[in-house]
Computed example of a mutant assay.
Amino acid sequence: MGGIGSGARRSAHIGDIEDALSFDIRILRRLGVARPGECVIDRICWSTGAHERPTARLRIDLSDETCCTMTVTADMPDDTIKQRLMIDAVPSGFGGVRHYFVCPVMGHRCEVLYYVDGRFASRQAHRLSYASQNMTDLIRVRRRVISLRRKLEGGEGQRRLRGRKRTAVIDRLEDTQLLARDIWHDRLRKQIDRSGSRRIPGKKH
């Protein structure tokens, strides 16, 4: 007999987007690192919450719309890499062009590249999914509990909630904790029904 949650549908995806370092061409453009008609060399770092933050040296050449490239030299958590990526310039309906990365594995256009197993490539190439797609209802509720607790505790640049806002979050947290408990007990009941037992663990008789 499988454990609780063993009946969850399995996926061909092998990781979550939220866990992967990435480059978003739209963000790079807003930061001024990707400038149409120019070649820019700059250094960026990812904020991961760890003491040592991964850094990358970028050379983004958009000076020739027929051959745009981005060269990445990066100190990643698992290795130091150097990778050359193609960028496609697509005419925009409002004039000018819109830039997309070209996935080095599958060759399609994408706006975000993710780092997995020593290289940057698209979400589809790395078979990544959003964490919420792989969550069971219990995991989803438990994550909500953690998020609400963090709001109450503050920290990491966030002010501690006060007054009505704090009271509202406390009420939501209590409701969410009750929901998590109900889902857990419901799963236990289903598990016990399958096993033929008459007693729910943790319940007093």
Rank of each mutant, 00 (worst) to 15 (best):
R26Q: 09
R26G: 08
R26T: 12
R26C: 11
I27H: 06
I27Y: 12
I27L: 06
R29Y: 10
R29Q: 15
R29C: 11
R30F: 12
G32Q: 01
V33F: 15
V33A: 11
V33S: 04
V33C: 01
A34W: 09
A34Y: 09
R35T: 13
R35C: 14
P36Y: 09
G37F: 10
G37Y: 12
G37H: 10
G37E: 12
G37N: 09
G37Q: 03
G37I: 04
E38F: 14
E38S: 14
C39L: 07
C39S: 15
I41M: 15
I41A: 15
D42T: 00
R43M: 12
R43E: 15
I44G: 03
I44E: 02
I44Q: 02
C45K: 05
W46I: 07
S47W: 01
T48E: 13
G49K: 00
G49C: 05
H51M: 09
H51V: 11
E52H: 09
E52C: 06
E52M: 06
R53N: 15
R53T: 13
P54D: 12
T55S: 10
T55V: 04
T55Q: 11
T55P: 00
A56V: 00
A56K: 00
A56H: 02
A56T: 00
R57M: 12
R57P: 00
R57Q: 11
L58R: 00
L58S: 04
L58I: 01
L58F: 10
R59M: 04
R59W: 01
I60S: 11
I60A: 04
I60G: 05
I60E: 07
D61H: 11
D61G: 06
D61M: 02
D61A: 06
L62M: 10
L62N: 03
S63D: 05
S63G: 09
D64N: 13
D64G: 03
E65L: 14
E65A: 14
